[in-house]
Nucleic acid binder design. Sequence first.
DNA 1: GCGGCAAATGCTCATTTGTAGCATAAGCGT
DNA 2: ACGCTTATGCTACAAATGAGCATTTGCCGC
Lengths: 327, 327
Amino acid sequence: MKPPQQIAIGLNAVIVAVTAEVPRILTVRAPGKGPSLDALPFGPLEPATDSTLDRALRRWVREQTGLGLGYVEQLYTFGDRERDPREALGGARLVSVAYLALVQERAASAAGAEWRAWYEFFPWEDWRTGRPPVLSEAIEPALERWIEGASDAAARRDRRERADIAFGLRGVGWDGDRVLERYELLYEAGLVEEAWRDRAEREGSATPPDQAAATLLPSRPMLLDHRRILATALGRLRGKLKYRPVVFELLPPSFTLLQLQRVVEALAGVRLHKQNFRRLVETAGLVEGTGRQETETGGRPAELFSFRREVLRERPAPGIFTAPRRL
Amino acid sequence: MKPPQQIAIGLNAVIVAVTAEVPRILTVRAPGKGPSLDALPFGPLEPATDSTLDRALRRWVREQTGLGLGYVEQLYTFGDRERDPREALGGARLVSVAYLALVQERAASAAGAEWRAWYEFFPWEDWRTGRPPVLSEAIEPALERWIEGASDAAARRDRRERADIAFGLRGVGWDGDRVLERYELLYEAGLVEEAWRDRAEREGSATPPDQAAATLLPSRPMLLDHRRILATALGRLRGKLKYRPVVFELLPPSFTLLQLQRVVEALAGVRLHKQNFRRLVETAGLVEGTGRQETETGGRPAELFSFRREVLRERPAPGIFTAPRRL
DNA sequence: GCGGCAAATGCTCATTTGTAGCATAAGCGT
DNA sequence: ACGCTTATGCTACAAATGAGCATTTGCCGC
């Protein structure tokens, strides 16, 4: 018999692709576990064979899905006790190192692996067609109730402050990068399914109260804390877009400037000014014309561009600044 | 008997303080190990008692050094096989989650814990008094030899490209944030002691060749890959300074604007334009005057300012932009 | 008390960068 | 040819940035 509290270590992958202006992540079916939740691909570190963490990741992603990863970046290491409610009951502590990978979408060959639009998990994050209605219709009133439900005036002030900052309320202004902050607030306020599920599992009770179901936001839950990992990934990616030319990992070798812009917009969740975007990427030397044309644009043909790898040596930190228009 | 390849997990802390314009980190004496190397404080995750990773960190830092940490941020998780050369010989794989902590300097009470100026570990990173001479005198010629030593023309081009970008050579321009990239290049080129030590330990040979000792840069080595962790911390901190008001964690509750500037400069490793710095922090609303004065300035007395916590709600990403003057 | 020094503080000005929009070009379908 | 769509060039204006001059104010030595 092992000591009661062991540590297990593993790797999670947030594999991102953008197709048809929809950012997607690769999910797998959660093993067993009732109503079959979405989960992030997960795999072990094999110390005997994997010389580095990211090689371990690439190995089992290929084994599980047939997908060869290109750009890979470590995101964060999750080790909270609460991340797996079963641990409170004596299971091993599960430490996961999460990675972000950017690929061009292809069919993942593993059974059960599926591409899912990531805004299904975070409907409040997509502002491309304006402020998502779920904010005014569901989130704001629910947060208001949560704020009012605090025990005293100081706690209420604190909650309101956090809600304002996270969701850009009362004059604060939306900050696209605060994805994790928003998800964590919604979790704490009991507006996402995971919050109730975790409480129920920890306390052994069966189903969340009816009242809870009524206030849940329409959004897709995930296994364990995987939606938190996903929020971390989205926030990090949005931040990185602004100062590193990572978008190109998601695009084919040549593309029109509008295609490039659409991918950035899909990730950033906002619309950008077309002419300025074009000027920005051109003056930053991020792309170079190929001379070829794309004629399937639906309008005037567009020139095809390709990423100029040399920029990496020209500017300290080249990138695409996806400054959201202030509303 | 356990399986030959186990995984052990632990936490490393890079604890930073700035005193008298010198950024310092807390080091401990490496246990045993010959000539007594500097090491980063290290401690375990106790799954039974530590509910989160950062609580584990705070716990053992207090136990070992008596220091209570305030601002703490996860840096990176290191899990390469090569990080501990003994592992190649059958030891357990050591995975370390590294954290960055910012404190005001105080005496650390543990025996053997010492504050060390971090530019002793990276003398080429401090440009406050101009370009460090070690660059022209030692690094550039040594890198030149390393470039020329590549096996073929393509490899030479590749090495030169990397050296140019990392060290801002041949028109590229110095980027203060690329601390890790520089350290890794120096390691690869065999210019830091760790490179030879690791090779010797892996291959079982005794001492580095004389030729190696001759090209080593004058800089302080650390245990295992701790200098790499430190480089990660410095780079991350420099980057973060630009968009988050983290400097204030290192300062007392009230300070003059010059004191603030000196701390930023110490971390960023560059001098800044005084009037513009002042304008920046004031218009960004990062500080507010206290009405009190500091008279020990050596010149006209300066007003004491304090950090305005409210900025966190006002701007999406307030911070201090330590834009280095382009050279 | 006075002149000079050091640092603080106020302000100007040129440049760069960011934002918004107008205008024209060039394919496609009818 | 006309109208629709998207591409692409260019202008006007606003804000942020970078560099420097000028003035203020306490201290120190004389």
